[in-house]
């Protein structure tokens, strides 16, 4: 499977998914003009990838701000990974946040509430 890489812009994050290594990265801020259009290639890539993922998959998220439609997209991404976890795949999430920004921590904790996969929240 091909890598998925979408460069960051001022209102959309970097997407860098390496299928062989099982390393998925989402970094930056997310409030694009149309979140569902922006994340559509992410959803379709993950859907394909999770049929036969690497032995261990880690999603590293470093999102300092998401608007509500991006939050919805991220919930959907996490649900896809959680589904793979429930089927016995080794999938985990590491959520990185800036320790100055309490809101980013609150947000990470809310995302973690809704999934059963291993979810680490790391301050930087």
């Amino acid at each position: 499977m091909e890598k998925l890489r979408i460069e960051a812009s001022s209102c959309s994050p970097l997407i860098d998914f390496d299928p062989a290594a099982g390393l998925l990265r989402i970094d930056g801020e997310s409030y694009p003009e149309n979140s569902f259009d922006f994340y559509a290639p992410v959803f379709s890539w993950l859907e394909e990838y999770l049929k036969d993922p690497a032995p261990a998959v880690v999603l590293d998220i470093g999102l300092s701000y998401l608007n509500t439609s991006s939050i919805k997209c991220m919930i959907d991404v996490l649900e896809m990974l959680d589904g793979a976890h429930q089927k016995g795949r080794t999938v985990s999430v590491r959520w990185h946040y800036d320790s100055d920004n309490d809101r980013a921590l609150d947000m990470a904790e809310e995302f973690a509430e809704d999934v059963s996969l291993p979810f680490e929240i790391l301050a930087h």
Binding site: Y31, Y65, D98, D100, D102
Partner: peptide, 16 residues
């Protein structure tokens, strides 16, 4: 920073 982000995020939601 959290107060800045609150103002910014409410602004983005309203404008969008």
């Amino acid at each position: 920073k959290s107060a800045i982000m609150d103002v910014f995020s409410v602004y983005v939601e309203q404008a969008q």
